[in-house]
Nucleic acid binder design. Structure first.
Lengths: 160, 160
DNA sequence: TCTATTGACCATCTTTGACTATTATAGCGC
DNA sequence: GCGCTATAATAGTCAAAGATGGTCAATAGA
């Protein structure tokens, strides 16, 4: 039931609860899960991309490693700008979802809000030819991103 | 004799007596009933549609699943259905905003969520000719409405 | 006629394996 | 000891295979 990829993702995130980065051996991890080493790359590519808020560094050869670093962007003044830039005029569903997950992991939005945002940018919602979909998704998504940050500001004012 | 579809419907509802949601494998279920997998989709489409009070989520690929969620909206059994009907294929911004406010007043969504939803269906977000805007807004909005109800179900599960 | 059933074809997500690229180190000739 | 090379130890890439679920039109059945 729990997919191998999901297990590996959880395992890594578990390792990162304390620290913002973790270093591991690709082959060791693969052996631990009894899978092909390239499976690890798949998990990194699909769950720990830059859009998800992670940076991967690695080194081959003897003593090689894979390091996963959670990007420190919370509170950074132009985080919103960075996101808006990333989205630009066109964005695919995968990327949008990755960014939404990232916002959730950073506790900037709730799980409910994340689900709402996903539903607004889903393929289902944007009933148009694919190329137009991406453009429209970007427009809707940018608007929601701005709102997320307004919400945070609003909360801050009310807490104080 | 009970039709296949009826048996499958009954079987699924049996599974849902305890919980308001159930997760299953399409192929397994089909095999269990000795029918084509697409038969399952037929049953879902005809007996577990939104106006029957259910919402379907699914995922393909390894570890794929079909999840069926029963909506038990407090007091008003077909509230979601009513809202979806009201929205239909085209809705203007004012109407959408009114519905959002209504959901907020009923405490079905938070203020933050309301703001997010407004941003997704705003004029700004939908950069298209006006007539197309309404159609698109309806699609985006319908998707978000369903999500609102899923969120409520989810919350209910977690509270218990 | 209306509903139910099937099957062919499509879409998406995961897993693997063969092949490639990089790095450290041991061994060798000097 | 120094520099070079071969080898071992890693990690990366990509395409194919595997594992699911979705759609739709044709057909069968009530």
């Amino acid at each position: 039931m729990a997919q191998l990829s999901d297990s590996i993702e959880h395992f890594i995130k578990e390792l990162m609860t304390e620290d913002a980065h973790v270093e591991l051996r690709r082959n060791e991890l693969a052996q631990h899960f009894g899978c092909a080493p390239s499976q690890i790359n798949y998990v990194l590519a699909t769950r720990f991309s830059v859009d998800h808020g992670y940076i991967i560094e690695s080194r081959r050869g003897g003593g090689g490693y894979v390091r996963i670093v959670r990007m420190q962007t919370r509170g950074e003044p132009n985080f919103l700008d960075a996101l808006l830039n990333r989205v630009g005029n066109s964005v695919d569903e995968e990327t949008a979802n990755a960014i939404i997950s990232n916002l959730f992991e950073r506790k900037m939005i709730t799980g409910r809000e994340a689900a709402l945002m996903r539903s607004a940018v889903s393929r289902n919602a944007l009933a148009l030819p694919i190329s137009a979909k991406d453009v429209l998704r970007a427009a809707v998504f940018r608007n929601m991103l701005e709102q997320v940050f307004k919400n945070l500001e609003e909360d801050k004012r009310n807490d104080v």
